[in-house]
């Protein structure tokens, strides 16, 4: 499968996750969100960028529990809870945010 943004083709898996992490750019994230009927605000980008940094350091997409804890530590307690994250990413913060961030689906996420 693939998605096309601004004339550029991005290969994805059958669930819409980017096949090649390095191809990611902000436009493809916006297009993925649009397809889900969502608009990316600064609050979304904060989480997306956090996930990309986490992946860069540890080579995995974190589990929700780990993400929540780490966000709280880095961005403040008021953001480090599942209510905040689920409001931003109603399909599941790990799953949906990872997709927009160009990461593979988190390990253990079904």
């Amino acid at each position: 499968m693939a998605i096309e943004v601004n004339g550029k083709t991005y290969e994805t898996d059958e669930e819409g996750y980017l096949a090649n992490l390095n191809e990611w750019d902000e436009d493809v994230a916006k297009a993925m969100a649009e397809a889900d009927g969502a608009e990316l605000t600064d609050a979304h980008w904060e989480v997306i960028n956090f996930l990309r940094e986490y992946y860069d350091e540890y080579q995995i997409a974190p589990a929700v529990r780990v993400l929540t804890k780490a966000i709280g530590k880095k961005l403040g307690k008021e953001k480090g809870n599942s209510k905040y994250l689920y409001e931003l990413f109603p399909y599941g913060p790990a799953k949906q945010a990872c997709k927009y961030a160009g990461l593979p689906k988190p390990t253990g996420c079904v």
Partner: peptide, 14 residues
């Protein structure tokens, strides 16, 4: 092959 060494450093988070 993907180097999965960095992932061991995430174990503390888990």
């Amino acid at each position: 092959m993907k180097n999965f060494s960095p992932t061991y450093s995430a174990l503390g988070d888990y």
